[in-house]
Structures are given as structure tokens and as C-alpha cells.
Design a protein around this nucleic acid. Structure first.
Lengths: 139, 139
DNA sequence: TTCTTAAACAAGAATTATTCTCATATAAGA
DNA sequence: TCTTATATGAGAATAATTCTTGTTTAAGAA
């Protein structure tokens, strides 16, 4: 995203434009499913004084505004996902690697399945797959 | 589960039978997707001296042995699931409630879908749905 | 049954991720 | 340029989890 697009992302959500928030957005674009710590390390390369609290606070703000999402994991470190389109996640069973998985055919299959089959006492808002397995290539 | 079944669960995995481990198993049977803290509170009703570290250590052991599983969440408290059969999870979008969802038809649909459609560079081991939404009834 | 020993436990200290506090700085509209 | 609500930096505080150490105990051997 260009600088002006990053700024537009913020103003569209009613957020002030600050260097820290722009750095966060840029970091989120360039790191896949990062932890807060990943982001801090990345940002401090160019912006050494950013405070840890600011990063956490800003991530929280972005989640509230729907700019990013939290990723569910079995670890006690939170991870974030800058992509908010409907997609699924591939979880490595041997490491902490997580990749996005886009599959429109699957989305439609799920949509039609749950359109026809209700879950008693539950109103579905979103369905996501956690696909556990092994990546064949290193990365 | 009867006491002898609980004991068999442990010996089958090569674990020594201890009162603490039996209490853990019983707590896990009677609490849905509990946190470590939930379990400690439950066990201390009858077993006031169990140490927090023992609960964490034992949960870790049970996960390693496949007796229970960790449940992925967006919170920084771990939750556990005593049911290791293939099933999915319903996550409440407004609270921390999580329920199990069993659907054999869905499992077969997913199995046949991924039998036919490979994910490039990825070997699937397990597929689980995270179903986000609202519970209609309180509980 | 008693003995032996590796494994498990209790208690509390240590660690780590995250949140909070508050004084200062700054974005954005007037 | 001024004003003010909001954001930030720095570091303290918190909460979940892990680690350490001395003691106890389960389970097989004698």
C-alpha cells in the first residue's frame, strides 16, 4: 500500500494519522501473522523509540476497528492477521508457522451447507477452518 | 468414567496413578473447555492443597499424551478440551463461551472435499471448524 | 510386606506477555 | 497559530504460566 492508502485506512476508521500507526500498518503488511514482539522488532529497525505499550495499544485499536484480526492459536502469544477477507489458516503441527488459505469453492460449500443445516440454538456469523498439518517445503 | 476407567486412562499412557492426576481427569470430565484456573478452583473444593504448578504440569503431560487437547482462542488464557474425538467448536462472539459441535455429515463433506482437492505444499492432518456466532439461549 | 528409586508433588520464586499509569507530546480542527 | 482531545514513551503493575528445590510417593523389586 502507498503512504496515502495507509493514511486513508486510518482516516476511514476515524483514527488520527501518526507516524507510529503508519509504521504499524507497514509492519503488518510485511509480516505474516506476526506477534507483538515481531512487530516491535521490525518497527524498531527504522523507528527505534516506539514504546511497547504503544504497539499493544495500537494493535488493540486496529482490532476494534476491524483493520486487523487476532489469530487463534494454542500458544500464549497473540498473533495478528492483516488480512480480513474471508480465508482459512494452515497451522504447522511441528512449528509455529501459520499460512493463509484462500479457497472460494470451499467458502461456497460451507455457506450452502450451513444455509441448509442449522445449528440448534446458535446463530452463525462466520466459519473458519483450522487446517493442521505439515508444510512440505521449508520456508 | 468410573475410577477404574480413570486409572486405566493413565496406565494406558504409561503414567503413574496419583490422586492429583485422578482429580485432574475428573475435573476435565466435569468442566467444558476449562482454563487452568477453572480446574484449580474445581479441584480445590475436595483437594485444597493441590499446587498450581502441579495442575499446569499435569495438563501439559496430558496434552503430550493425547489425553486432552488445547483449544485455540484469541485470549491469553489457555483452555483445554477433554474430548479428543473429531469435532468442531462454536465460539460466542460476545463472551468466552465455547461449545463442542459434532457433525458427522460435515466431517464427511470435508474429508471428501480435501481428498479431491489438495493444498499445494501442505499435507493435511486434521481439519477443524471455528464457528463464530451467538448462542440464542443463555447458559 | 518392606525397600528402592525414579517420578511426582508443594510451595513459592521467576519469567513472559500484556496492560496500566501518568507526565509529555502532537494531530487536527478552530 | 492556538486549543484540546488524543496519542505516545517510559516504566511500573498484573496475570498466566513456567521453573526450582526440597520432600513425598507410586510401583516394581527383593
Amino acid at each position: 500500500m502507498s503512504l496515502s492508502e495507509l493514511k486513508e485506512t486510518l482516516t476511514a476508521k476515524g483514527l488520527k494519522i501518526t507516524p507510529q500507526r503508519l509504521a504499524l500498518l507497514e509492519a503488518l503488511e510485511n509480516n505474516q501473522h506476526p506477534t507483538a514482539d515481531n512487530i516491535i522488532g521490525y518497527i524498531r529497525q527504522n523507528h527505534p523509540n516506539i514504546a511497547i505499550g504503544t504497539v499493544y495499544k495500537t494493535l488493540e485499536t486496529f482490532v476494534e476497528k476491524g483493520i486487523i484480526k487476532k489469530v487463534k492459536t494454542e500458544k500464549d502469544v497473540m498473533r495478528y492477521d492483516a488480512i480480513t477477507d474471508n480465508h482459512h489458516h494452515l497451522y504447522c503441527s511441528e512449528s509455529d508457522r501459520i499460512e493463509d488459505y484462500f479457497d472460494e469453492e470451499l467458502n461456497q460449500l460451507l455457506t450452502s451447507y450451513f444455509a441448509q443445516k442449522q445449528i440448534p440454538g446458535f446463530q452463525i456469523e462466520d466459519v473458519k477452518l483450522q487446517i493442521l498439518g505439515k508444510f512440505k517445503n521449508e520456508n
